[in-house]
Amino acid sequence: MIRRTGARWTALAVLAAVLSVPGTAVAQDDKPGPSKPTDCPVETVDDKGNVTIVYVPEGTTYGLIHCEGGDWKFGWFPFDSASMATADVITVDDRGGVKVDEAVIDGRAGDIRAGEVKYILEAAGVSDPYEPDQAVVRSEDGKELYTTQELTEKTTIADLADKAGTEAPTVEFSNRKWPKFTITFKCKLLPPWCSIIIRW
């Protein structure tokens, strides 16, 4: 679970440090660059919705998300493995909440289980992650191929892809209590690779 209090103070400390240096904090449109290639970008959003990008040094950590080599990386429990998710940028809101909207998993696809979704959402910054109870499988061009509300913890993306008859599934998981809050996996089964898109 993301530690909201720690993330809040870390975010404020980073922002304060950047703002104390003239010309360092730049509006999003100005596209600031990192001091080092291993720095990672953070989108900070104030209470008016204004977005500023700052860069933090390698090794900076927000909960389960850490900066490594210019990218944000995170794993999840209890299914943690050598293959982690990688994100280009994270967002920190005015209350210190941290979230990831998009990430990539390299080296895994078909073996990702529905039971992992809750933990992936938790690692990505969702304060109240859900267990999915429905899934929609689409083709690469967006055509709906298969829908089910009979998910189990062990249902895999490969299982759903097989039902849909595709080796390049786009699988959208959701919970009927929060139908607009989705996590979508756009995958290739061979070689295994998935991108993740979270709609908050």
Rank of each mutant, 00 (worst) to 15 (best):
residue 63 G to W: 02
residue 187 C to K: 02
residue 4 R to T: 08
residue 45 V to T: 06
residue 157 I to K: 01
residue 50 N to Y: 06
residue 67 C to Y: 01
residue 174 S to R: 07
residue 178 W to Q: 05
residue 28 Q to H: 12
residue 24 T to C: 11
residue 134 Q to C: 11
residue 60 T to P: 02
residue 29 D to L: 15
residue 11 A to G: 13
residue 79 F to Y: 11
residue 45 V to I: 12
residue 185 F to Q: 01
residue 51 V to P: 04
residue 117 V to L: 08
residue 51 V to G: 03
residue 118 K to C: 08
residue 170 T to S: 13
residue 26 V to R: 14
residue 181 F to Y: 15
residue 91 T to W: 04
residue 36 K to Q: 12
residue 195 S to C: 05
residue 195 S to G: 13
residue 35 S to Q: 08
residue 95 R to P: 00
residue 86 T to L: 03
residue 120 I to R: 00
residue 103 A to D: 01
residue 192 P to L: 09
residue 130 Y to G: 12
residue 102 E to C: 02
residue 86 T to M: 08
residue 200 W to E: 14
residue 73 K to Q: 13
residue 23 G to C: 15
residue 176 R to L: 04
residue 123 A to D: 02
residue 187 C to F: 02
residue 58 E to P: 00
residue 25 A to Y: 09
residue 87 A to G: 03
residue 109 A to L: 08
residue 149 Q to S: 15
residue 105 I to V: 10
residue 161 A to P: 06
residue 196 I to D: 00
residue 48 K to C: 07
residue 25 A to S: 10
residue 8 R to F: 15
residue 154 K to S: 03
residue 68 E to Q: 06
residue 186 K to T: 10
residue 157 I to V: 03
residue 86 T to E: 09
residue 183 I to R: 03
residue 118 K to M: 10
residue 16 A to M: 14
residue 130 Y to K: 13
residue 170 T to W: 08
residue 115 G to Y: 03
residue 90 I to N: 01
residue 78 P to V: 09
residue 81 S to C: 14
residue 93 D to C: 12
residue 153 E to N: 11
residue 50 N to T: 15
residue 36 K to M: 10
residue 21 V to W: 05
residue 31 K to M: 04
residue 123 A to M: 10
residue 113 R to I: 10
residue 163 K to D: 08
residue 193 W to E: 12
residue 108 R to H: 09
residue 159 D to R: 04
residue 79 F to S: 04
residue 156 T to R: 11
residue 180 K to H: 10
